[in-house]
């Protein structure tokens, strides 16, 4: 049974697109046939982070308008088998996204793919609504700061009330909390919210904690998602994928231990 997973947050800049790229790559690396869709019409980014921006010929709006087939518009990822990208349109009006069109695309994708990952735009406008409406599961990306938590809370409320599952009275969207840009040191010194604080406020199961890292920026710029490199971020996203697939993996990158004498003396690397 194929699944539609929305990556959402409400707030911008928290790591939705980074998460969509890494999570979908991770699923593909684990052998799941995966498609990832950029819903941010007008401000497309996913193609850049996936390093396929020069291969975008047709986009989601072309498919909705019947100007291209889904097969023509899907771009095969350069880093892994099993992964395809459907880009957002950069030039079209964002109102070109319609619920009927999105539903048709998702249904067609579900015939061939195990997982369809929807990268939501920020905000609670129509793009974000379209991205979450048909979802079976949701990764709610949250940063350890109050405004991000508040916006995630808002998105969770909207999903619980307005998603297709809610409207039809079916079992609700399965929600997962993903904390990104987590800095254990700053959390320990109470400059940032702790994992437990965020869990207490949002009350949904935690699927992972991704540490704040410079490797994310480097990966974005090079067009190769961090999960393909060797880093804490890669490990964290692999854990997230494993937990999503039902494996019991202990949490990492959540506790701060002061560097010992030798580590301080000889550096952390």
């Amino acid at each position: 049974m194929s699944k539609v997973i929305v990556v959402t947050s409400g707030k911008g800049g928290v790591g939705k697109t980074t998460t969509s790229a890494n999570f979908s790559s991770g699923l593909a690396l684990r052998g799941k046939r995966t498609a990832v869709i950029d819903f941010d019409v007008g401000l497309r980014n996913l193609d850049l982070i996936m390093g396929c921006e020069r291969r975008v010929v047709y986009d989601i709006i072309d498919v909705i308008n019947g100007e291209a087939t889904l097969k023509q518009a899907l771009i095969k990822d350069k880093n892994c088998e099993n992964l395809y990208v459907l880009a957002a349109s950069q030039t079209r009006d964002k109102d070109a996204l319609t619920l009927e069109g999105v539903e048709r695309i998702l249904n067609e994708l579900k015939e061939t793919f195990d997982c369809v990952v929807c990268d939501s735009p920020a905000g609670i406008e129509s793009g974000a609504f379209m991205a979450m409406y048909f979802a079976d599961e949701a990764l709610v990306v949250t940063n350890p700061e109050v405004s991000s938590v508040r916006d995630s809370d808002r998105i969770l409320g909207i999903m619980a009330a307005k998603s297709k599952r809610a409207v039809e009275g079916r079992p609700p969207i399965k929600e997962h909390l993903l904390i990104t840009r987590y800095d254990v040191k700053r959390a320990a010194s109470e400059e940032m919210l702790k994992v437990e604080d965020i869990e207490d406020m949002l009350r949904i199961p935690l699927i992972g904690v991704v540490p704040e890292s410079e490797s994310v920026l480097a990966a974005s710029n090079s067009g190769v998602p961090a999960i393909h490199e060797k880093s804490d971020v890669a490990e964290a996203y692999k854990d997230v994928v494993a937990r999503f697939l039902g494996e019991d993996v202990p949490m990492r990158f959540t506790t701060y231990t002061k560097a010992g004498f030798f580590k301080r003396l000889f550096g952390e690397r």
């Binding site: 916006d151 809370d153 808002r154 969770l156 409320g157 909207i158 619980a160 009350r203």
Partner: peptide
């Protein structure tokens, strides 16, 4: 019986 969230 479910959390009441921001904006609700």
């Amino acid at each position: 019986d479910k959390p009441v969230r921001a904006g609700q």
